[in-house]
Design a protein around this nucleic acid. Structure first.
Lengths: 249, 249
DNA sequence: CGCCTAATTGACCTCCCTCAACGCGGGTGG
DNA sequence: CCACCCGCGTTGAGGGAGGTCAATTAGGCG
């Protein structure tokens, strides 16, 4: 259960966990689960919808059930800086700190479980195991934040795009499909537009396009459609991302 | 105690907390503190020393007592990418996850309290309050990571350098001194070399130098020595960092 | 006083951001 | 059924920020 044993070689065979399925409920008694459910509501947001405003009171907490959510901050000049992409299992909103911090926006259609922040904290005091689960979720998010940092600080756009594809495979394997036996190639579907991608990677649509075509020309990627790629050479793609290869164990 | 009431207006009067002094011991009983002390050892590392290797077994955990520690990852091309700077109160090493993840290196001379990881986790199960403190420390680190991300993704080098100075004042006020009454100017001491700074900001020593001279020419900064700056115009420096102004409350 | 390292400055060149044009598909209305 | 349009992706030309290499200057220490 902690190792979903996916057949997707999230760059390289079986790296890390794939979809964490960190659930707030795990390990809770029936009664505790009931208390948690009592204050939670499942809500859906359409792609592009703002979930939490940076200014608004952070009265809500939410756990991502499906889809992904971008965390961003608006700069003085109006540009939006993405600081992270939340995948299922991660939490939106400051559980402890009161500061609103970042805006969260639905990057795709998403499904959330929302909680009243005050009530959730009460529960947190009552149920140590819940605090433990929150901590686990937080750690996961933390790790993701560092990965994200490695990604956006990759130097060339080509590098960042390669890194993004790999990140996608590793953290969101459902958008990756049909990997060949030798693990050298796979199909990847980009769930976002070029414009979004440009924003994520801190660049422009034009540069994204050029980076993609570069990879295609070099035979690392094949393109079925604008959002459907075939990875033709995994090792080369990894090399181009500039990151460490996964532990060859 | 949680509000050290520093007279340093960490860019703008009294923003957030200044030095958190998050201690693992806080709120523990005498006996619990004794158990914690029993497995901890105070250790010193000279500037530049490697504390934890990315490859080595993560058998050790540590809490930073003094100085600061850089978290970094080595890229394929040998360049080192800094993903964070740990200040006193924060923890090194994965408390839960087993993955070594990042190398940690002493950015200045540092003093740590180190723990055997296995024993620490045992303690964690026994003392819920300790887990709570770890969580608090982690949250702090998390927040710092996002701030760091905002910093390094600032677009021009000039912007990033301005942001770094402000971050330094906010998170490490001891390196900032003698702020004038109106809060417009202050002395700031850079605790690191240009080479380190370049690494932190993802750029080169030359570009750092040019950025500094730019600020000096424009009258935003004065330079007493290579590592001693006088902030002549705080508001302008903040504006140049490209970040939101601190809440003007 | 001479050495060594850190910091600065200059010249050059690459990458990518900007502005602009163009191709393509999918709708809608005639 | 076809013409048109509009959003999206791609391509091209030009310029600016900054990385790279190299030379010069300023500080610390024997």
């Amino acid at each position: 259960m902690t190792e979903p044993k996916s057949d997707v070689p999230a760059h390289g065979p079986a790296r890390r966990r794939v979809v964490p399925a960190i659930a707030l409920e795990s390990g809770l008694t029936e009664q505790e689960q009931a208390r948690l459910s009592a204050i939670g509501r499942v809500q859906r947001y359409a792609k592009g919808a703002t979930i939490l405003d940076a200014e608004g009171e952070p009265a809500m907490l939410a756990s991502v059930l499906d889809g992904f959510v971008k965390l961003q901050k608006t700069r003085l000049d109006g540009r939006r800086q993405i600081v992270g992409l939340l995948v299922p299992g991660e939490m939106i909103g400051q559980v402890y700190g009161a500061r609103p911090d970042f805006e969260s926006e639905a990057a795709t259609d998403v499904m959330l479980r929302t909680f009243d922040r005050r009530r959730f904290r009460t529960l947190l005091d009552d149920i140590p195991r819940l605090e433990h689960n929150v901590l686990a979720s937080l750690l996961h998010e933390f790790e993701a934040a560092r990965e994200w940092m490695m990604l956006v600080s990759g130097h060339s756009v080509t590098e960042r795009f390669a890194g993004f594809l790999l990140l996608l495979c590793r953290r969101w394997p459902e958008s990756c499909c049909s990997v060949s036996a030798d693990g050298r190639n796979a199909m990847v579907r980009l769930p976002v537009s070029r414009a979004d991608l440009a924003q994520y990677l801190g660049t422009t649509v034009e540069s994204i396009s050029r980076a993609v075509q570069q990879h295609v020309r070099d035979g690392v990627l094949g393109m079925r459609s604008a959002s459907q790629f075939e990875v033709l050479d995994f090792p080369e793609l990894i090399a181009r991302s500039g990151h460490e290869a996964p532990p060859p164990a």
